[in-house]
């Protein structure tokens, strides 16, 4: 007799546990306000990334097209993957002294692992992360970027 009771108890307990699960899922079905996905390419304009978001490494320039990079090469040394390459040149300043400055600050986005060591170790805070995240391109060579803008100069007062 007890085995028969056990048999029916198992059935009803099983059905009850299934109904509990169905209550959760059907509850979500009838509450469309809880939808979490976004219509991504349509909402591009209102997408705001967090300020610390690691999109890509950039070199911020001010309005006079000046940057802070002295060309010391510390970022290049610290980069674990060889993502950054600093090509420096020697320029003559107004008072006749010879000085090192960057020619090209090459950043290979395809190799970057976003460890943030370059940004953190830069002694003059010349590098930063941008919020750009749509990096897909049709040609791999487009991923090799030059961080300093053409014709840019070192900001005054930075050695």
């Amino acid at each position: 007799m007890s085995s028969i009771i056990q048999y029916f108890r198992e059935i009803f307990q099983g059905i009850w546990s299934l109904l509990k699960g169905m209550r959760v899922t059907s509850g979500y079905f009838f509450s469309p306000g809880k939808i979490v996905t976004q219509k991504y390419p349509n909402n591009r304009k209102d997408l705001v990334m967090f300020e610390r978001f690691k999109g890509e490494v950039i070199m911020p320039h001010n309005e006079n097209n000046e940057h802070k990079c002295t060309g010391c090469g510390i970022c290049e040394i610290n980069c674990p993957n060889g993502t950054i390459e600093v090509i420096s040149k020697t320029i003559v300043t107004e008072d006749g002294k010879k000085k090192r400055a960057i020619d090209k600050h090459i950043y290979r986005l395809g190799m970057c692992t976003f460890c943030a060591l370059c940004v953190k170790t830069c002694p003059s805070n010349a590098l930063a992360f941008s919020q750009e995240f749509e990096h897909a391109v049709f040609n791999r060579s487009l991923l090799i970027k030059i961080s300093n803008k053409p014709g840019s100069q070192l900001m005054k007062g930075i050695e």
């Binding site: 899922t25 059907s26 979500y28 079905f29 809880k34 939808i35 979490v36 996905t37 219509k39």
Partner: peptide, 13 residues
């Protein structure tokens, strides 16, 4: 669509 709404998604749109 049904499974999308169950799973808090929009489904095909």
């Amino acid at each position: 669509k049904v499974c999308a709404f169950l799973q808090n998604r929009l489904g095909p749109n």
